[in-house]
Amino acid sequence: MNVSHKILSKSQLSENVFTVEVEAPLVARARKAGQFVIVGISDDYGERIPLTIAGVDTDKGTIRLIWQRVGKTTAEMADLKIGESIDYIAGPLGNPTHIEKFGTVVCVGGGIGNAPLLPIATAMKEAGNKIIGILGARTKELIILEDEFAAISDELIVVTDDGSHGRKALVTEPLQEICSRDPKPDLAVAIGPAIMMKFCCRTTKQLDVPTQVSLNTIMVDGTGMCGGCRVEVGGKTKFVCVDGPEFDGHQVNFDLMMKRLGAYRTQEQKASAQYAEHRCKIGLTDTIRKKQ
């Protein structure tokens, strides 16, 4: 049995962020909020990369993926066209988010983190929670899914580093204000770059607001076999693919995690550069920015 993963629609959300709706009936049927898939675009020599399931259409048997072009594989994916196929999509992986009625949930998304955050925020909303959204990015173009968040948030705050859109601030600023309110929120969910999650957790810890984070470590198998996704949580080794991807943010050792994320930086830059060159040769127009 060969499952086809044809791309049914595709669009670009910002300069380096892309989204597709792709056939994956088995994944679509089983998936719950907070889960991810492992995607490979070439069976023999390709890389296996984890991406969150940003949405699902169970009737059509499709899932939505949103990704940022950071390296070779995500760049190759960005070059796929409607009607073309992704080689394989395995999942859904990871534990679903624990959804219940907590009361007020503040959802903080940074950059591409908005993509994995959206299904969780949506499910929290559906469970009867009041949603306060905080979306942040370096600059206006990088804020994605603002309309979708506006639709489900009871209150939405947008910030940019350069003030080109919304407030000029880092996400931790409004987060601090909201967590200082009385009554304070019952739960915070923060998803974004590791550094952002680290500072969000520092903020919420001081103000004693429980905080969930979703970790984006490097992975290989996604089934608990390789140990590549390990992180230190509460002083213990945990595997993001089977124990996570969500953890109590106050227990996560972000400094270690950030170092591990950089493990292959030099090699990946090389691979990206090679791919960019290859693209130029075959006449694809826009070039890949090497540094985000």
Binding site: V3, L26, V27, A30, Q35, I38, Y88, I89, A90, G91, P92, L93, G222, T223
Partner: peptide, 8 residues
């Protein structure tokens, strides 16, 4: 392939 029993 790509079928994770327990999840898929």
């Amino acid at each position: 392939c790509n079928f994770v029993v327990g999840r898929t």
